[in-house]
């Protein structure tokens, strides 16, 4: 299996389509015959990062690349950036509005869920510039 890469554009506030990129990612992995446990972890992480882009960012992209040893997800947005990353990583902490919470989002579980699902998780955020989240999941034979 060679390297495979895809990019998905995510629009701010597009709740109607939120989850579509994650669905596509999942379908790609399934076609590649990736282990179902790893697909679940990638699907959860991709969904959470996609929802985060829809709710909190001004828009961005999710890129996925698959090589024989690992799956890498990189989410990059164009702002506004996270004020306190340490706090944002805390379970239950959310800056989502009441309206968003009524829809069942904004539980403050997004970033912690991503971290749990990934073998490595890295977040970098600059106010006024944007946030980059890099997640890597090792494939079984690549460990």
């Amino acid at each position: 299996m060679g390297n495979i890469a895809y990019d998905f554009q995510i629009e701010k506030d597009d709740f109607e389509r939120a989850g579509e990129a994650s669905s596509k990612i999942k379908k790609i992995l399934r076609q590649l015959g990736i282990d179902s446990g790893i697909i679940r972890r990638v699907a959860i992480a991709a969904y959470e990062v996609e929802i985060n882009l829809v709710i909190h960012s001004l828009g961005g992209t999710i890129s996925i690349s698959i090589d024989p040893k690992s799956i890498m997800i990189i989410a990059k947005d164009i702002g506004p950036g996270i004020e306190n990353v340490e706090l944002a990583m805390k379970e239950g902490y959310s800056t989502a509005s009441d309206k968003i919470r009524e829809m069942g989002f904004g539980a403050g579980m997004g970033l912690p869920n991503m971290k749990k699902c990934a073998d490595s998780f890295y977040i970098e955020s600059i106010i006024g510039k944007g946030t980059i989240i890099t997640m890597k999941m090792m494939l079984k034979d690549g460990e």
């Binding site: 709740f15 109607e16 939120a18 989850g19 679940r40 959860i44 969904y47 959470e48 929802i51 829809m103 069942g104 989002f105 539980a107 403050g108 579980m109 997004g110 869920n113 749990k116």
Partner: peptide
């Protein structure tokens, strides 16, 4: 809470909720 469901519900489960939007 969607993230909570995302983290804990298992394949094949029936999900009981009052959320009704497309997500």
């Amino acid at each position: 809470l969607l993230s909570w469901v995302m983290a804990h519900a298992q394949r094949g489960d029936v999900w009981i909720t009052i959320q009704t939007h497309t997500n």
